[in-house]
Design a protein around this nucleic acid. Structure first.
Length: 421
RNA sequence: GGAGAGAUGGCCGAGCGGCUUAAGGCGCACGCUUGGAAAGCGUGUGUACGUUAAUAGCGUACCGAGGGUUCGAAUCCCUCUCUCUCCGCCA
């Protein structure tokens, strides 16, 4: 959500920010609506003040046993007038909100211009793209050959874009999740949280998944949503709160199942488990004071990178350009791991600073000297478990189709060193 | 799923159509007092919007949320949400 006062103070800057996203100017019309809104509000408040006075007068008169039929008649007229004024003020407010709710966050100055992912900027790369002495296979070829990645059974019981992992591959996924959680809680000070996987409208709206992206998530028939990411419940947990300054930064992590309808991605990544309706992700969320969010963004991204480093997976950090940065983000780093079978970099994490964008939608504030300010919220994958498992399978594959278990995961795998064909 | 009881300021708690500008207490802040502290006394103590240079004043709204009745609603009515107790079911 956007700050109407800031818009009023500098309409040109507001439009310039929209232009970076390739969106048309709206400031002039919003400023006009805002003037109407404030005029309507002034009129309404004045009428309400008179109602207050009148009611007091009547109360006084009744106590004195005087006749009040004449004043009460004036009250009737005033009541009708207030109802009209109130309706008008609400209508204008709603019109403004409808526009503002659908406008994306303003981009950080450091975000490069650009239209789409081709204009993203590689910040750095860690690890080398390996050359295999044999033709590297894709994860689903490896998984199906092992008999541990069962798309057929999942299709039968649920449909496409689901998978059933079996045996040590199921355990490998679990091991990865544990390893991520342990790293973030043990080394980076994140509090482990288990969260509801079903949430209400307010949580989805506050984390900017509504109203614009309703079709991307699953809706239940009792009017809840399956969370598209752990970001939603973690971030929305501070909804409506005024947090004491000393309680910040608040860092939370959860290992959760995520659900996406993938409505707009028919035909994309249909093979394998790269793009599923349901997947596991370790999510990081930080709630911080406004002046801390930039540093926190780097810190969070480092936490996510650390997991990839420990797993020995080559990756690169990419700064998303203006056109590729998501609706709620001011700035986003993607982490992309190398998939030898697919011979491509694929996103395994996305770390975003939303600044006060979500906080305004959620009304999440912190205490400041004599006043309150909106907190800043950040979210990042630390990491997408399924996709990291894919990268790991493809990176650690042997010519015979067996897969070596990285050192750091062996304690979580009962000491297993290799997944044999 | 059934029956009942609740939701009031940071916390406890009164109020149940107008005399509420929400009593009183606790906590917190500041001041007085003191060698210092405690106690005591005094003053202050929410959020949002509007107005404004202002986080100063002033105005309006807010007693779980949303509607309604009324000249006037914390108080009456309706719907919803959440909490608690009991029964049923269940991991």
């Amino acid at each position: 959500m956007h700050d109407l006062k800031a818009l009023r103070a500098d309409p040109a800057a507001f439009d310039a920010a929209l232009a970076r996203r390739g969106l048309p100017a709206v400031a002039e019309s919003l400023v006009k609506e805002d003037e109407q809104r404030r005029a309507a509000l002034a009129e309404l408040q004045e009428a309400q003040a008179r109602r207050k006075g009148l009611a007091k007068e009547i109360g006084q008169a009744k106590r004195n046993g005087e006749d009040t039929t004449e004043i009460e008649a004036r009250g009737v007229a005033l009541r009708d007038r207030i109802a009209t004024l109130e309706a008008r003020a609400n209508e204008i407010q709603k019109r403004i909100d409808d526009v503002l709710q659908r406008l994306p966050n303003q981009l950080d100055a450091s975000v490069p211009d650009g239209r789409d992912e081709n204009d993203n900027v590689v910040v750095h790369q860690r690890g080398e793209v390996p050359s295999f002495p044999f033709e590297a296979k894709q994860h689903f070829e490896l998984g199906e050959a092992l008999g541990l990645m069962d798309f057929a059974a999942a299709g039968k019981i649920a449909g496409s874009r689901f998978v059933m992992l079996r045996g040590v591959l199921a355990r490998l996924e679990r091991a990865l999740g544990q390893f991520m959680l342990d790293t973030h809680t043990g080394e980076f000070g994140y509090e482990e949280v288990t969260v509801p996987l079903l949430v209400n409208d307010a949580s989805m709206y506050g984390t900017d998944k509504l109203p614009k992206f309703a079709e991307d998530s699953f809706h239940t028939d009792d009017d809840r949503w399956l969370i598209p990411t752990g970001e939603v419940p973690l971030t929305a947990s501070v909804m409506g709160d005024i947090l004491p300054a000393e309680s910040l930064p608040r860092r939370m992590t959860t290992l959760s199942t995520c659900f996406r309808s993938e409505a707009g991605s028919a035909g994309r990544d249909v093979r394998g488990m790269l793009r599923q309706h349901q997947f596991t992700k370790c999510e990081l969320v930080s709630v911080v004071a406004p002046e801390e969010s930039e540093a926190e963004h780097e810190r969070m991204t480092r936490a996510a990178e650390t997991v990839l480093e420990r797993l020995g997976l080559p990756f690169r950090r990419v700064l998303l350009c203006a056109g590729d940065t998501g609706f709620g983000a001011a700035k986003t780093y993607d982490l992309e791991a190398w998939l030898p079978g697919q011979k491509a970099w694929r996103e395994v994490s996305s770390c975003s600073n939303t600044r006060d964008f979500q906080a305004r939608r959620m009304n999440a504030r912190m205490r400041r000297e004599k006043t309150t300010v909106f907190v800043h919220t950040l979210n990042g994958s630390g990491l997408a478990v399924g996709r990291v498992m894919i990268a790991l399978m493809e990176m650690y594959q042997q010519e015979d189709g067996s897969i070596i278990v990285p050192d750091v995961l062996r304690p979580y795998m009962g000491g297993l060193t290799v997944i044999l064909i």
